[in-house]
Design a protein around this nucleic acid. Structure first.
Lengths: 208, 208
DNA sequence: CTTTTTGAACTGACTGGTCAGTGCAAAAAC
DNA sequence: GTTTTTGCACTGACCAGTCAGTTCAAAAAG
């Protein structure tokens, strides 16, 4: 009998892994990797501890695969946003704006993953450091790409520092969104998006 | 023997506490709170384990006081930056710019503390949650204050969302600076500051 | 004499990881 | 069509190691 569950995951095994991801992501976001026990993850996922080790080689491996899984979703979403404005013949600012929205949508849907990711990104000497770097670069590269195209097309100043500006834009969205979810969760996404758009387009200090 | 070190600390006890702060901040930044052992902290600080517990009630308390200590330095620095431009009769954009620089200087000097702070800020259900919130608000309030004054004085649009814009600005500096220290540490502070200034003043998408 | 530090031994709770065994649905055998 | 076998997915008690925190006598510092 084929399990009639939702997303792509077919086998029973895949469903279990998904449950483990979901359990792990919230617990680790709240408490951090080291403070989260495998027993907790298993309990929250509703499986036995042995099942965790049947599906993942170790606690670290579970975490690494979770990172890959999550950032994969984000990267795909950013690319989609950038491309859809390109198809419509929009400017690069429009593309950036669409990516800001995509970032907000992602954080809105997966706040725990975002928390966890930010908390680990700048650590050093950790086992999954290289994984983290790879996935980070995949995501930031999308933003950098749009900036470079904008410079090439004359839309952006040639003086801008592409990697640094990309990092700053990502940071702007990241921190604003985390603050939104943490401290003003009642606000709408459109609202937050509008505020960030304004900042992006320099309409903060501009008079009219 | 009086240690001829820098900051205010007078008594012998204070010097020991300072050593413990310094040891703890780097270790926790690298590994996280839970993964860092008290034995490690004592060893790195060059004191006996008993000394840690003579000076701090617990590992958590040591960490909380470390947080207060660190953010206190940052807040003072931000306030100083904002006030010094105000004395010179500068605009509010100048004040923001000076605060961006102050933030960069702080992160340049205490990168480990910044890492650790970011890693903990959006967590939930942790013992030091309230401490974290208090010190966060102290720092962000300085930025918000400048934005409000700018709106009141007609320099900034009345449409801006003060808390959210403040968070976004902080995020911009934070992430750009952490990326700088992590991935391009050879760049100069002035360089990074210039790139962020440009972004702040909307001279990215602006043609000229 | 008082304050602070030392250092090593100890405890008790907790944790990552293991492994022999269970359940069960589909395939194979008859 | 009934019985037997297979092997994947899962279970949960168990183990060996780790760590925060305690204790305390004695030494160093002032």
């Amino acid at each position: 009998m084929e399990s009639s569950t939702t997303s792509g995951g077919t086998s029973r095994r895949e469903a279990t892994r998904q449950k483990l991801y979901e359990a792990a992501v919230t617990l680790i976001a709240e408490q951090g990797f080291s403070a989260t026990t495998v027993d907790e993850i298993a309990e929250r996922a509703g499986v036995a501890k042995g099942t965790v080790y049947y599906n993942f080689a170790s606690k670290s491996v579970l975490f690494e695969e979770l990172l890959r899984h999550g950032v994969g979703l984000l990267t795909a979403s950013l690319r989609e946003a950038a491309e859809s404005t390109a198809r419509g013949g929009g400017s690069k600012v429009d593309a950036l704006d669409a990516m800001i929205r995509a970032g907000l949508v992602f954080i809105d849907r997966y706040p725990a993953f975002t928390q966890l990711y930010v908390a680990e990104l700048w650590r050093t000497n950790r086992a999954w450091q290289s994984t983290l770097m790879v996935v980070r670069q995949e995501a930031v590269a999308v933003v950098e790409g749009v900036l470079r195209e904008g410079v090439a097309g004359g839309e952006f100043s040639e003086e801008i520092d592409v990697p640094l500006t990309a990092a700053a834009l990502v940071g702007m969205v990241l921190v604003a969104a985390l603050d939104w979810k943490s401290f003003q969760p009642e606000r709408s996404l459109d609202d937050v998006h509008a505020a960030l758009s304004r900042l992006l387009q320099g309409r903060v200090s501009g008079r009219r």
